[in-house]
Every structure is written in structure tokens, then in C-alpha cells.
């Protein structure tokens, strides 16, 4: 793909990566509806999911425009198969318990907020505008997920155990956010987006500070599962998520909802 990648193809891939991250994470978070540990968390989780779905409409809407095949954000969300999704693996892993859900949110929010900070200066004004709008929401997501991770880490022995287990499980999914490929190189050349690898030091500084406040131990490994943002190899979980999310559109093609 790298040798023949046109600028628009690269931009399309980049926008899918942004939009698929928010789509799949928003979906996962929305699975909590009505089942959270306390009413305030039900409200906060629904609010986060709602923000992420709104952001998806913007990213995938622009992706459809750039692709130029007449596809809407809904077409992209509901009518692609697993191999066409470009989200990182981190956002598709199942919710498991509340600790894993909030740790996943924190590990993603930290990357997302740094990424959007750079995208606000994008040479593409459409991307800069989406970043400016969504970064405000994401700043709040980060504040909340970081506070909750600290609260659970520095809470009881039991809550510490849950959130440490979540970190241990999720840590191998962190590295993928900082891998760079030809799509990223094209974005860097055009001044559209930063090189993912260049965000790692800011990310580590932010994340390690919060995890330290949370009295958590960061796993001593930089091993990273990969394959989501290239689409080469998603987890088994994504297919199940799509069977649910896409069911109505697939079962009743062409209907308007």
C-alpha cells in the first residue's frame, strides 16, 4: 500500500483511524447503560459515550467526503467489515469490569488529548476545527478518567487490585497508539498530523504521573499488540461488536431510520 498511497487515500485512512477509535470506544462505553456501580457513573458513562459518538459523526463524515464515493458517516460505521476498521486494538477489548473500562478510558484519553492538541494546529482547517471542538470534551474525559483511576488505585486494597489487574491487562495495547507507518508519514509531510511516535514522551510523562498518584505499578514491558490501526489483525472481539452494532442496517438494507 505504501508505495502507491495517494495523499487522499492516506488522509482517508487517517480519518478512519480517528473516527473508528471514537466509534468503537463510544460503543463499548454505551454497553454500560443502566449497569454502572452508582447513578453518577451511569450518567458520566452515557455522557462520555455520547461525546464519542458525536465525534465519530464528524470524523467519519469528513472521511466520507475525502473518500469521494458518496458514503455517509453511517455508511462507514454500519457497512464495513472488520478488516476495514482502523481503530487501535485498545478500544475494542471488552469492558470486563468497571476498573478495566475506566483504565482503558484513561489510557486512551491521555493519547487522545495529546493528539488533539497537535491536530488543532493541523494544516487542514477541517481537521483543526474538529480538533478544536472535540478537545474540550476530551479534556473533561481525561480529567474524569484520571481522577477515577487515582481514586480506585488509592482506595481500598480490593479496588487497588482490580485497577492494577486492568493496567496489567491493557498495558500491551498501549504501544500501538505510537506506531508509525506510511499513512502517518504522509500526514506528517503535509503538516496534517503529528508522527505518532513523537507523542510517546508526552504520553509517558502524563500517564506515569497519574499512575504514580494511583499507587499503581507500571508493567516493565514495552511489548505492543498491533494490527488495529492498519486493519491487518483485529482482536476476535471486534467482529462480535459489529454483529450487534450493524445488525439493523445489515438485516434491512436500504431502509431509512
Amino acid at each position: 500500500m505504501a508505495a502507491t498511497l495517494t495523499q487522499d487515500e492516506a488522509l482517508f485512512q487517517f480519518l478512519l483511524r480517528m473516527g473508528d477509535n471514537t466509534l468503537i470506544l463510544g460503543h463499548r462505553v454505551s454497553e454500560w447503560c443502566g449497569h454502572a456501580p452508582v447513578l453518577e457513573e451511569d450518567i458520566a458513562l452515557a455522557n462520555t459515550a455520547l461525546d464519542l459518538i458525536g465525534q465519530t459523526q464528524m470524523w467519519l463524515g469528513l472521511a466520507g467526503e475525502v473518500q469521494g464515493a458518496g458514503k455517509s458517516a453511517d455508511d462507514l460505521a454500519f457497512l464495513r467489515d472488520v478488516w476495514d476498521f482502523r481503530n487501535v486494538l485498545l478500544v475494542e477489548v471488552p469492558n470486563a469490569d468497571f476498573g478495566r473500562t475506566l483504565m482503558r478510558q484513561f489510557l486512551f484519553d491521555a493519547w487522545h488529548s495529546i493528539q488533539l492538541g497537535h491536530l488543532m494546529k493541523s494544516s487542514d482547517p477541517r481537521i483543526a476545527a474538529i480538533a478544536a471542538k472535540t478537545s474540550k470534551e476530551v479534556a473533561y474525559h481525561l480529567e474524569r478518567s484520571a481522577d477515577t483511576v487515582v481514586g480506585l488505585g488509592d482506595g481500598t486494597e480490593e479496588s487497588h487490585g482490580f485497577i492494577q489487574a486492568a493496567l496489567d491487562y491493557l498495558w500491551p495495547y498501549v504501544g500501538e497508539m505510537f506506531t508509525s507507518d506510511a499513512v502517518d508519514a504522509a500526514m506528517v509531510d503535509a503538516g496534517i498530523a503529528p508522527d505518532p511516535a513523537s507523542l510517546r514522551s508526552d504520553y509517558d510523562a502524563l500517564v506515569l504521573r497519574v499512575l504514580e498518584d494511583a499507587t499503581l505499578t507500571v508493567p516493565d514491558s514495552r511489548f505492543a499488540h498491533k494490527g488495529g490501526r492498519t486493519g491487518a489483525m483485529h482482536t476476535e472481539h471486534l467482529g462480535h461488536l459489529l454483529t450487534q452494532m450493524q445488525w439493523l442496517q445489515r438485516a434491512y438494507p436500504g431502509a431509512s431510520w
Binding site: A36, P37, E41, F98, T156
Partner: peptide, 10 residues
């Protein structure tokens, strides 16, 4: 399921 979360945050 949320008991440990409420206890931890408290």
C-alpha cells in the same frame, strides 16, 4: 458488582 468501586472511591 459496583460495591468495590463505591468502597474504593469512598
Amino acid at each position: 458488582d459496583g460495591q468495590w468501586v463505591r468502597d474504593g472511591l469512598l
